[in-house]
Design a protein around this nucleic acid. Structure first.
Ligand code: MN
Ligand code: MN
Ligand code: ZN
Ligand code: ZN
Lengths: 141, 141
DNA sequence: TTTCAGTTTGTAATCATTTCAATGTAACAC
DNA sequence: GTGTTACATTGAAATGATTACAAACTGAAA
């Protein structure tokens, strides 16, 4: 928990139990949950939690670049604790979002090009291999 | 208009005036409009047009891979007549969405890798150079 | 203590999208 | 041609994620 306290303090954001819980949740779950999932899971521990607090907290964490918003889904925003740059794969069958590590060599040019780029999002959509029945196992190299 | 008639026929989709107008609109506007924009613009010519028809049409065009849905905006879906693969830049200041041509060499590996990839989306977000006052002019190479 | 700014909470409003049922249309069978 | 049928269009209503708002809470500073 100290980890999250520090992040908040470093950014000059007031430390509150709700904020810590939400940060911890995002950091520990690699599932890229939406607000409803975060809310319903955390409400088990803290029944007084308000969904508005989840929205407010995600908004401030985002403002300070602590979390990232994924627009990969068409119906709701997904949240990701911000680590190093990576891309995402959305399984259109089961809805899972998986981290994808791709280092695109063209990225640096884009980042230094004529546009001032603040965010980079790489989204792939398709069917995950669990949903394909784990039949084909093809390497990625 | 023949162009759009052909595309519909090739795909076995019934030809209707509404569908043709929507296809033409998307093909001729590189603005990646949302449903509201398509609807309000086309309603000028055809006041009887229903927004549901716009939704329905975009849905079927999408199903046959004639248009592409962009989830780059957090509040509404944007639509793009589907040409060759390209990425997008969203200006967080003026809301414009600009086409970006990036040929990522890693893409093919991703496409043939362990996931069955149907869609590839590359989104960059930041401030466009119009909004930056056209001060810096930096090349992209 | 009192004050005060910021936080949390619950409710209400907003608004993009979906659902649904009625109406329209056009090809096709008779 | 007339009736049948499948599909398309339309407008209204429902849904659901997100935002706006105001009241209650908290905790540090005066
Ligand atoms: Mn991720
Ligand atoms: Mn485009
Ligand atoms: Zn899956
Ligand atoms: Zn701009």
């Amino acid at each position: 928990m100290k980890k999250y306290v520090n992040i908040l303090k470093e950014n000059g954001i007031k430390v509150t139990p709700q904020r810590l819980e939400i940060m911890k949740y995002l950091d520990e779950h690699m599932t890229h949950p939406d607000v409803e999932k975060i809310y319903s899971d955390l409400k088990k521990k803290n029944p007084a939690l308000s969904k508005t607090t989840v929205y407010n907290t995600l908004e401030i964490l985002r403002k300070y670049n602590i979390v990232q918003v994924l627009t990969i889904s068409e119906s709701e925003l997904r949240y990701d604790f911000k680590n190093t740059l990576h891309h995402h794969f959305l399984c259109k069958s089961c809805g899972k979002i998986i981290d994808i590590d791709v280092e695109c060599p063209k990225l640096n040019k884009m980042l230094k090009g004529k546009y001032k780029v603040d965010e980079v999002h790489g989204y792939f959509k398709g069917i995950c291999n669990v949903c394909r029945g784990k039949r084909k196992t093809v390497t990625n190299n």
